[in-house]
């Protein structure tokens, strides 16, 4: 909002160029001032309301670096990373299966995506947890044999539930990426004598990454938040620990704010990482790589008309 106002102020004092500079009274955007005032007033009102509420804000910094909270943060991150690894690997396999010429494999992949995309993750988590009703034992003949309930620990439930669900979404993202690569690329690689596998690995996937990375970043951030659901299958992570502390310390709502703050911090860090990964895969797609935030800051501070960029 304020940025808008700044811009209109900036255009008034453009230096006169060429012949006779036009002097005119600029259009007054009264609406902008009004909406800015309303927005700021609303914001102040909300902050005031929270400040006045019966919330003990001091509890938040008190527990912010509590051991249990830090453990929870660690477990949340671990769950996110492992589930995404399962999701991405599974997604690539499913995408290749869906694009394969074999009608059976492509139908199987279609069915998988249909099922896992069509049911809520929370329901899937409960299903995995209680699959003991169907399979009493798990029996990998020579290696391992146990009751399903012993085998299916909360961690495994959480990983399978989140990872397999994610694979369905990643499959669609990967498929879109693979399809986005020009057919001529495959032909050129084949004409050079490259095999199907090598063409996929060296030529198609690196180009598909440009299309795949931005939505995958979204998925990672989504996953980080979705991990809070696994509290339901008895796996403790950030949200569960925060709840626990809330119950024992008598500050339950405060702990939700604390958890929210930690989730925000983690998603913000991930967004920065995503920016740099996108930048890496933009190689060769545009003539000039987009500047990093730091380069932008430097350029703005120096803002002497030197050619921008220059980073290799």
């Amino acid at each position: 909002m304020t940025v808008d106002i700044d811009k209109t102020a900036g255009t008034q004092d453009t230096p006169p160029a060429g012949a006779e500079a036009i002097k005119a009274i600029p259009v007054r955007h009264y609406g902008r001032y009004v909406s800015a005032v309303i927005a700021i007033a609303l914001l102040v009102a909300i902050i005031y309301a929270f400040g006045q509420g019966r919330i003990n804000w001091h509890a938040v910094p008190d527990y912010f670096f509590d051991d249990r909270i830090l453990t929870g943060v660690g477990k949340t991150l671990m769950l996110t990373v492992l589930s995404m690894v399962i999701g991405i690997v599974g997604g690539i396999v499913l995408a290749v299966m869906r694009l394969s010429k074999n009608p059976v494999t492509s139908s199987v992949a279609w069915f998988y995506i249909w099922f896992f995309r069509g049911t809520p993750v929370l329901v899937q988590l409960f299903l995995w947890f209680n699959l003991g009703l169907v399979f009493e034992y798990i029996n990998l003949m020579p290696f391992y044999k146990d009751y399903w309930s012993n085998f299916m620990t909360p961690l495994l439930t959480a990983l399978l539930g989140l990872g397999l669900n994610e694979a369905a979404y990643m499959a669609e993202i990967c498929r879109a990426g693979l399809l986005a690569v020009d057919e001529g690329q495959t032909e050129a690689a084949h004409a050079l004598g490259m095999s199907h596998g090598r063409t996929l690995r060296r030529i198609v996937i690196p180009q598909a990454m440009r299309v795949i990375v931005p939505p995958t970043g979204n998925e990672v951030i989504n996953m980080l938040k979705t991990t809070s659901l696994v509290a339901a299958v008895q796996f403790p992570e950030l949200f569960r620990y925060a709840q626990d502390i809330g119950q024992t310390s008598g500050a339950p709502v405060e702990m939700y704010f604390l958890a929210a703050a930690w989730y925000l911090i983690m998603t913000s860090v991930l967004s920065v990482g995503q920016y740099y990964i996108e930048r890496y895969y933009a190689r060769g797609s545009s003539r000039q790589l987009p500047p990093t935030p730091w380069q932008k800051v430097k350029a703005n501070m120096l803002s002497i008309g030197r050619p921008k960029g220059g980073a290799a």
């Binding site: 020009d182 001529g184 690329q185 032909e187 050129a188 690689a189 004409a191 050079l192 004598g193 030529i203 690196p206 180009q207 895969y281 190689r283 060769g284 797609s285």
Partner: peptide, 15 residues
Amino acid sequence: RDIGMVFQRFNLFPH
């Protein structure tokens, strides 16, 4: 491998 091909649309690998 023994047959080189040049395409109308070049098809260089952009990355």
